[in-house]
Nucleic acid binder design. Structure first.
Lengths: 189, 189
DNA sequence: CCTCCTTGATTGCTACTAGCAACTATACGA
DNA sequence: TCGTATAGTTGCTAGTAGCAATCAAGGAGG
């Protein structure tokens, strides 16, 4: 238990350092996290509600965060075609530029320097921890689409979107299937 | 680089989940971190300035955080005997009770469950990462006293405080030497 | 002893953030 | 068609962070 508690402390402290590096620019930490999420989420998941779940925040707060990003020109808003109540957000070129200078990259470099080829093992361990923590909190996993139990590979061979989601009944491109999804449920073990 | 970036994302997200579990009670995340720090810092390090360095925050902010904790009865303030400008903070019984129910313990349990006997290796990897990140930011390491280059073991054998700090010229108890210290500098490699 | 500079801490001010709750609009089930 | 649940926004309030100014105390040098 003691090394585990120590590890928890270290995670906390690392994140705090990273956060300190994020302030001072045009974006605050919450806005950075929103941009990162939108960059990695598939097209079913770029909504305020999904982002609120992902960040363990509330819809009101997220609504304002996205409004602020929109006002600053980082995201674009479009009404959802699937649900008239919903809106979808996409990144602008300005957001792509910003993400290319994401302060988190500095931390990734530290991880590389400190762990070297053990970085994949570290990521795997962290993923396992996150799964436990998410399950305990009753949240959603937001895993990669292709690792979902609704994912059907190569149902449309030869097409640009060869895979398929059995839950939403939509064709999936290779890029879609690599992105994270609000509906993702891990394949049964 | 990609697994490292993924790991950085995961650390961010884990911390955010932990933070969500910290709200709603009597204490906010910054106050929790202050309590945790005070519980682990040796007697040279329980000052606002040291806490501000540790949390990569400012003295003004920390001053208010500690004032709030004092008003709620979690910490006690005493003037420093070594420096008339400085104050030292100690935890009250109420703080000890709170820390026994620290939300971070839930995360530590998740780490145990997910990593099992690999938890010490995980902690070691995270420590190495933190060292890199701290060096990059020009901050202080806040390592354990006994791992410091100013630490002299057993200079006063048979006493209650057998060890010694060559920087501050003070005797150190075993508990002191296990605590984290604002002045800690790693032993030369 | 006196002076200048540095450091520890606090506080007025401002800007921003988070969350709750109320509200509108749309979807969906009976 | 009606009732209920869900997606999103917004008014309000409380709290937080950071900057800059201020006060107090150490420390170096003459």
């Amino acid at each position: 238990m003691e090394p585990a508690l120590e590890a928890a402390h270290l995670i906390d402290r690392l994140e705090r350092l990273a956060r300190a590096g994020e302030t001072g620019g045009d974006l605050n930490p919450a806005q950075w996290e929103a941009l990162r999420y939108l960059a990695r989420a598939n097209r079913f998941s770029r909504t305020p509600a999904a982002l609120a779940d992902y960040l363990a925040s509330t819809r009101g707060t997220i609504s304002r965060t996205l409004a602020s990003l929109e006002a600053k020109g980082y995201v674009r808003r479009e009404p959802s075609l699937r649900d008239g109540r919903s809106v979808e957000f996409g990144l602008t070129g300005k957001a792509a530029d910003a993400l290319a200078r994401d302060p988190l990259i500095a931390m990734a470099r530290d991880i590389e320097a400190a762990c070297g080829e053990q970085a994949p093992a570290l990521a795997e361990a962290l993923r396992a921890i996150l799964r436990m923590a998410v399950a305990r909190n009753g949240g959603r996993a937001f895993g990669a689409c292709f690792s979902c139990r609704h994912f059907r590979a190569d149902m449309h061979p030869g097409h640009a979107a060869p895979h398929h989601c059995a839950l939403l009944d939509e064709a999936l491109s290779p890029a879609d299937s690599r992105a994270i999804c609000v509906e993702q449920e891990p394949k049964a073990a």
